[in-house]
Write a protein that binds this DNA or RNA. Structure first.
Lengths: 125, 125
DNA sequence: GTAGGTGCAAAAGATTTGCTCTGGC
DNA sequence: GCCAGAGCAAATCTTTTGCACCTAC
């Protein structure tokens, strides 16, 4: 357990957004100067393989990460702002299982992202 | 309309899988020798912007493409073989709309992929 | 004839890796 | 002291781009 790893893990734990490797590097650098992007990538990979981190791709060309929390959720991405909103829908979850089963598969994972634009609500402005 | 573009469009129309740019290049090269990977990328981009082609990312680091067919569908990826199976589930589709609406969003698109392993069926072997 | 398209090679951006050095235990 | 792990720079992989040349209309 080196200081670099400690800092990276801390940064990820403190983030409630979905930072890319570069973001993690930037945030970690503020705390611990002696750190390199390569180490961030290596540590992120370790954490991912250990099942601690989840990798996402929201379509902007780089991987985004978040800690696996107790509650599973999917994401809605605001196409105008890039904001990421988490959602849970048990009905969709079980339908997915059913679809896979019908096709002769056991589900090992899934990726579900919604992309949308905010509905303008005049009374909220 | 150049011969290169004609060939690329033809290759895509003839493919019922989800080829990456490199695959399109390989298939097109067999038909038309005078073609470059750069042209494939440029043409693919044009077709995507024209709404003729859909871009996917199945998690292997390169983009995969398919022609937009009349019927919308999502994908189940066999994690053992890489095989891609298309599926349609209207119930999930409308639940997605509902989820977005509840969060105050109008859906502009979505990405939904299931990852699974084939359930072994002894009587089928 | 010319504007848009092509090929080639180099650039760009994200991620990985080889190698040497270092710091935790 | 040893060895896993760090830093740095170079390599890799996919995709994009600059530029000179070409070709469809």
């Amino acid at each position: 357990m080196t200081s670099q790893r400690r800092v990276i893990v801390q940064v990820l734990a403190d983030s409630d957004d979905h930072p890319a490797a570069e973001d993690v590097y930037r945030r970690a650098s503020r705390i611990e100067g002696r750190i390199s992007l390569a180490t961030v990538y290596r540590t992120i990979r370790l954490l991912e393989e250990a099942g601690i981190l989840e990798k996402h791709d929201f379509g902007d060309g780089r991987a985004r990460y978040e800690e696996i929390k107790r509650t599973h959720h999917d994401h809605l991405i605001d196409v105008d702002t890039g904001e990421v909103i988490e959602f849970v829908n048990e009905e969709i979850e079980s339908l997915q299982e059913a679809v896979a089963r019908e096709l002769g598969y056991r589900l090992t994972g899934h990726r579900h992202e919604l992309y949308g634009t905010r509905i303008h609500k005049p009374e909220q402005d």
